[in-house]
Structures are given as C-alpha cells and as structure tokens.
C-alpha cells in the first residue's frame, strides 16, 4: 500500500486487530432455501411416482419379491427425503457471508460449522454461475479461485443476481486485484 511508505512496527494489542469472530454475517437470499426445498420435493415426487407406477401397473408381471423391494425403497426414500428436507431447511439458514474491505467470508454448517475466509488480494479470478433453475428464480452463485487449487474454490451459493454482481464488481474493483491481476 502506497500510504504505508514509512515503516512502523508499533505494538498492537491483539484485540485491536480486526477480528474474524466479530464478523457480521449476511444471510443468503430466502429464495435459496425455498428453491432447495421445492427442488428436493419435486425430485422426490418424480422418483416416488415412477416407483409407485411400477408397483401398481399391470402391463407386465413383476414377481412378489421385487414388488416388496419397491415398497421398501419407496418408504426409505420417503424417510430420507423428509429428513433431508428438515435438515436442509435449517442448514441453509446457517449459510451466510460477510464482506470486509480486504476479505470475504462464507460460513456454513448446522452442527459442523465452518467459516472460510478468502483474502481478496489472493483471488485469481471470479466466476458468476447461474443454472437454469437459478435463472428462473433470479439467483446466482459466485465462485472465487485462488492459487489454493480447485479443491479450495471459495463459493457462495444462493445470492440474488444483483447481490452476486455487486460482490463480483467489488472484488474486481478492489485496488490490489486490479494492480496485480
């Protein structure tokens, strides 16, 4: 930074530093949670209908045994879907992000919480992604790549398109990214 041409190294109390633990997180778009729930339900209905169709249809004979297996699969699918619907409903509510001058954080996890912080200075490029369903509900996902590798791509899903664009613009206009990228 140009302003810091003079060398200074005065003692700093640790609690005066910017603190990650005091970040104020912004929630994702409420549509994200809703879309996920609807999507899960739709997938479930399609699968269940297919299975149910095989069970009741009379076009060709199915022996008793596979018929019972279908019942078991169907009930397992129902339990699983109900569980994941409830779990995701609360887990999605935990997903939030926070933007500071110099870095961007994403927090997630219902039981196992995780906060990833990406210094903007280390960002190599930014991608804004919108799948067909995202487009329908006007959501977008932002992906940030650093030299940490594909395994550690920083990602914030479920942003409103305008928010996502604003974040992307914020990153691109960050002075250091401009200078180095």
């Amino acid at each position: 930074m140009d302003g810091h041409a003079e060398f200074s190294n005065s003692y700093i109390q640790t609690n005066e530093l910017p603190q990650v633990e005091e970040l104020t997180f912004e929630p994702l778009s409420p549509k994200y949670r809703k879309t996920n729930a609807i999507l899960n339900t739709v997938i479930f209905i399609v699968l269940a209908t297919l299975l149910a169709f095989f069970k009741v249809q009379t076009f060709f004979d199915i022996a008793d045994k596979p018929n019972n297996v279908i019942t078991i699969i169907l009930s397992m699918l129902t339990v699983f879907t109900l569980f994941s619907l409830v779990f995701q409903f609360f887990a999605d509510a935990c997903k939030s992000y926070s933007l500071r001058e110099q870095d961007i954080s994403f927090s997630s996890g219902l039981i196992f919480k995780k906060t990833v912080t990406q210094p903007i200075l280390r960002i190599q490029h930014v991608e804004l992604k919108q799948g067909p369903i995202d487009r329908k509900v006007n959501l977008a996902k932002i992906q940030v790549f650093s030299a940490g590798g594909a395994m550690h791509t920083f990602e914030i899903p479920g942003l409103t398109l305008s928010n996502a664009e604003a974040i992307r613009q914020f990153i691109l206009e960050h002075k250091d990214v401009k200078d180095h990228g």
């Binding site: 990650v20 996890g109 919480k113 995780k114 990406q118 030299a147 940490g148 920083f154």
Partner: peptide
C-alpha cells in the same frame, strides 16, 4: 503466502 483460511468448529 497463505491463500485462504478456514475456521471449523462443531457444536
């Protein structure tokens, strides 16, 4: 040289 940090904590 750090590129990214992660803080993980279960309940």
């Amino acid at each position: 040289k750090v590129q990214q940090t992660q803080f993980k904590q279960s309940v």
